[in-house]
Structures are given as C-alpha cells and as structure tokens.
C-alpha cells in the first residue's frame, strides 16, 4: 500500500482507514470558483472532495477534518443540483422531509427580496429525525472551512491514513431502517400542520404571482414587436385577447386542420373508375405478390442455412 501516489490528476489523495485491511481514498482539491457559484462557495476555504463514502454524514466529515480546522458547512453533490438551490443550506442530504421544507423555505426568501410583499406563511415542517442519506458511491462534496489555513492543512496532511469517524447520532444498519420506518410515519397532527401550511403557502404564492404578472385579466398581451398574443382561454373558453378565433386544440397539438375539410377534395376521384386504374392496381397486386414470394424464399433460405429444418 506504500505505492499509492499522493496525488492524482491534480487531486490530493486522502486515505481513510476503514478497518485494518480496508482503506478508502478521498480525492481532494481546493475549489476553483466558477462565476455563478461564488457566493456559496467562497474561494480559498472550500475543499472539493471526490469519492465521498456513500453513507457519510455532514457530522462525520466535520469530525474527519477536525484536526485541520473548523468546518463551516458541507455541501453534498453540488453539481447535480439545479441553480436555484444555490443558497440552500447543506441540509439537503438529510432525508426528504427536510428537503421538502428547506425547499419551500429557500424559495420564498429569494422572492421576498425582490418584491417585498407582506410576510409569507411559513411551512411547519414535519418532525425530522437525524437520518443518514445514502448517496451514489463515488460522489462528490464541498467542505467549506472557516478559514483558508485549515484548507491548506487539510490538503497537506496526507501522510498516514486516519480512521473514519463514526457519528453515533445517525443510526446505521438495521437501526437506521427502523428509524426511517418510524420517521416516515409521523403523528397525524404533524401531517395536518404540514399539509395545511403547505397549501397556505401555495395559495399565497398563487396570489402573489397573479399580482406580479404584468398581464391583467382582459388586457391583451403585446410583445416587444407589437404582436398581440392570442391563446385559448381557460375551461370556459375565455381568451386573453377576447373576441378572436383561436386555433383548435387539435391544431395546436398536431399542426393539422380538421380532417373533414381537406379530405373532401381528395376523395372526389373514384378508385376503380378508369380501366387503367384497375390495371394499375392489378399489376401492383401481382408485383406485390411476387415480391412477397421472393421475400419468403429468402427467409426460408436463411432458415435452411441455419439448419432449422432438421425436425429430429
């Protein structure tokens, strides 16, 4: 094991000792900022990790890097999240109910910043338990230290494998599944509080977006070129512009007009009216017949070649 190189493709290799025989390897690099992520991932004190253990929790990573310095937060799998999750906190790995409420929580402050409406109703979260969340093996994470010196220390200290700290707060194995089972079945009043507040939030947002929309009811939608947008209305046929015929749903979907209009013309000529039509038809029938025959012949030849016709 002494032959393990200390860095790979610019990543520092951090060995973790799982047991006396098994060693896991983290690949670490100081995070190089991208324009859009600057706010969340401060350059200089963010460590980018690859091949994080699938069951690692934030606490475990914090403990693992304790010797190099204090960790501010850990963000798992940053890259696969969509951009609007940027300002979410690091809890998104903590099971879905957390994700749910944090999701709701992080969306609204952003909008508030812009429009400054009256306070939005807050979602009452479901009771959460500390649970592990298993990620795909070989995934990545960001560890943000409090200061840049800790980062340097973390990258420097690669010499000997350190043991993987095991957080006792989040159960693992059988206990994990029991806890998960229980946490998925919260008390009924908690469910009600959560559902009610979520719906309230939805209604609030709906009202807000109506208010925010630059189109008012009954006003035409005019784009910058001066064209009025005419669409089909709601369930009762209201159109936004009003009074203008709009293409049918069928047309919208397929781009075809109703079938009875166009087809009338095409049908005018009878099929077997002229002798040549009949002749043509018969000829093509015969040619078709012959073609099929030849096809079958080829098929059977092929089967014959595969020695399929030896019944026994």
């Amino acid at each position: 094991m002494s032959t393990i190189p200390s860095n790979v493709s610019g990543f520092t290799v951090l060995p973790i000792k799982y047991s006396s025989t098994a060693t896991h390897y983290l690949y670490a690099r100081s995070h190089v900022s991208k324009a859009d992520a600057r706010k969340v991932l401060p350059e200089g004190r963010t460590l980018f990790l690859v091949n994080v253990p699938p069951d690692a929790t934030e606490r475990e990573l914090v403990l693992f890097f304790k010797h190099s310095g204090t960790v501010e937060k850990v963000i798992f799998n940053f890259e696969v999240k969509e951009p609007h999750h940027e300002d979410s906190d690091s809890e998104d790995g903590e099971g879905d109910e957390d994700a749910m409420d944090e999701d709701a929580a992080d969306e609204q402050p952003r909008k508030r910043r812009k429009t400054q409406p009256p306070a939005a109703p807050a979602v009452i979260p479901l009771p959460a338990q500390p649970l592990r969340h298993f990620r795909k093996t070989g995934s990545s994470a960001y560890v943000i230290f409090l200061d840049s010196s800790s980062l340097e220390r973390a990258l420097a200290s690669t010499s000997k494998p350190r043991a993987w700290p095991k957080s006792s707060e989040e159960p693992s194995g059988l206990a994990h599944y029991r806890a998960l089972y229980d946490s998925l079945r919260p008390p009924l009043d908690a469910v009600r509080a959560f559902a009610d507040s979520s719906i309230e939030l939805y209604e609030y947002e709906l009202a807000k977006s109506k208010q925010k929309s630059k189109y008012r009811k009954g006003e035409a939608v005019v784009d910058e070129d001066g064209f009025t947008l005419v669409t089909r209305g709601g369930a009762y046929g209201k159109t936004l512009g009003g009074g203008v015929g709009v293409a049918s749903k069928r047309f919208q979907r397929s781009g075809e007009t109703a079938r009875n209009r166009g087809n009338k013309k095409a049908k005018k000529e009878k099929e077997g009216f002229y002798a040549f039509q009949k002749a043509e038809k018969q000829r093509s029938n015969l040619i078709e017949l012959k073609r099929k025959w030849e096809e079958d012949k080829v098929k059977v030849e092929k089967l014959k070649a595969a020695r399929r016709f030896k019944p026994y």
Partner: peptide, 26 residues
C-alpha cells in the same frame, strides 16, 4: 469507489482502480 495506482511515468493521467476492500467494508 476507487483507489489510485502507481503512476505510469510515460502517461500524465492518474490511473485509478476499483477499491474492492473499501466497498466491502462499506
């Protein structure tokens, strides 16, 4: 989950191989 292998001098890229024992302990 991988495990770095000794670098080939000719090649620049770091090669890795499956870290079976670590997966077993996981």
């Amino acid at each position: 989950s991988s495990l770095p292998v000794k670098k080939d001098k000719a090649k620049d890229k770091g090669m890795v191989v499956l870290n079976q024992s670590a997966i077993i302990s996981e």
